[in-house]
Computed example of a mutant assay.
Amino acid sequence: MSIWPRDIEEQAYSIIHDFTARGLMIATAESCTGGMIAGALTEIPGSSAVIDRGFVTYSNEAKMRMIGVSSETLKAYGAVSRETAIEMANGALAGSRADVSIAVTGVAGPGGGSIEKPVGLVHLAAARRDGKVFHREMRYGDIGRQGVRLATLRTALEILIEAGAFT
């Protein structure tokens, strides 16, 4: 029995099965999900053939030191931004053996939101070795911390499927 809802388990299984068949590896860079993406993927037997590593970069310092997000990006755009998500994805790719990376940064709540960056705002990005980058901005709304995190996980898995589809 999985700890994840059935749809998440099915998405994760599909990713692991597809990426294994194609010999592709994944790295994750997670802020607001705190490792949930890597957790859902590694729940699937055989995931060790696909998951290279995961970075949980909750603090700005971790984003800079572990995956090379620039202090200039963080100062200019903030941790919750398209620019930071893309740098996180590129940094995870550069710091791993992966073919595809997925990165998420957002405001899960219940606090921490603002008018410009409300609770439920999440930026997701994927990067591939061929230089292609995917970005999606999601505004889930104030659906509770767990709701934002699970919604982000679902979206991240969708983006991984899209990013891996043409590698």
Rank of each mutant, 00 (worst) to 15 (best):
residue 147 G to F: 12
residue 83 E to F: 12
residue 63 K to I: 11
residue 10 E to V: 13
residue 9 E to M: 11
residue 142 D to H: 14
residue 113 G to K: 08
residue 117 K to W: 05
residue 6 R to T: 13
residue 82 R to S: 15
residue 56 V to M: 08
residue 41 L to K: 01
residue 19 F to Q: 00
residue 132 K to M: 14
residue 67 I to D: 01
residue 96 S to V: 07
residue 23 G to L: 10
residue 94 A to W: 07
residue 115 I to H: 07
residue 88 M to Y: 11
residue 134 F to H: 12
residue 141 G to A: 10
residue 26 I to A: 04
residue 143 I to E: 06
residue 71 S to D: 08
residue 17 H to S: 14
residue 88 M to R: 04
residue 35 G to L: 10
residue 156 A to H: 00
residue 96 S to A: 08
residue 11 Q to D: 12
residue 137 E to W: 02
residue 97 R to P: 00
residue 118 P to I: 13
residue 76 A to I: 07
residue 118 P to W: 11
residue 16 I to S: 02
residue 48 S to Q: 02
residue 102 I to M: 10
residue 48 S to H: 02
residue 26 I to Y: 06
residue 77 Y to P: 01
residue 31 S to H: 07
residue 159 I to G: 00
residue 39 G to R: 08
residue 91 G to F: 13
residue 82 R to E: 15
residue 87 E to A: 01
residue 136 R to W: 09
residue 17 H to T: 13
residue 156 A to F: 03
residue 17 H to C: 12
residue 133 V to S: 04
residue 8 I to L: 12
residue 123 H to R: 00
residue 76 A to Y: 07
residue 30 E to P: 06
residue 78 G to I: 09
residue 81 S to M: 06
residue 11 Q to T: 07
residue 114 S to E: 01
residue 154 R to V: 10
residue 50 V to L: 09
residue 155 T to Y: 05
residue 30 E to H: 05
residue 166 F to H: 12
residue 67 I to S: 03
residue 156 A to K: 00
residue 110 P to I: 11
residue 158 E to F: 13
residue 151 A to V: 08
residue 160 L to W: 03
residue 8 I to Y: 06
residue 146 Q to L: 14
residue 48 S to W: 05
residue 114 S to W: 00
residue 66 M to F: 10
residue 69 V to L: 10
residue 22 R to H: 15
residue 16 I to T: 04
residue 143 I to V: 15
residue 68 G to V: 14
residue 83 E to N: 07
residue 148 V to I: 13
residue 9 E to G: 09
residue 40 A to N: 04
residue 24 L to A: 05
residue 3 I to L: 12
residue 80 V to Q: 02
residue 104 V to L: 02
residue 165 A to D: 07
residue 143 I to H: 07
residue 29 A to T: 09
residue 32 C to M: 04
residue 140 Y to H: 14
residue 95 G to K: 14
residue 114 S to N: 00
residue 137 E to M: 15
residue 156 A to W: 02
residue 96 S to K: 03
residue 92 A to W: 08
residue 150 L to W: 11
residue 76 A to M: 11
residue 41 L to H: 04
residue 130 D to R: 03
residue 16 I to K: 01
residue 115 I to G: 02
residue 74 L to Y: 05
residue 104 V to F: 01
residue 115 I to L: 15
residue 161 I to N: 01
residue 114 S to Y: 01
residue 154 R to G: 14
residue 151 A to R: 12
residue 59 S to R: 03
residue 75 K to W: 06
residue 124 L to P: 00
residue 31 S to L: 06
residue 83 E to R: 11
residue 3 I to E: 07
residue 125 A to T: 02
residue 27 A to M: 07
residue 158 E to S: 14
residue 51 I to K: 01
residue 65 R to N: 13
residue 46 G to T: 10
residue 29 A to D: 08
residue 51 I to M: 15
residue 115 I to Y: 07
residue 159 I to E: 01
residue 3 I to N: 07
residue 41 L to W: 03
residue 120 G to V: 05
residue 16 I to F: 05
residue 112 G to T: 09
residue 107 V to T: 04
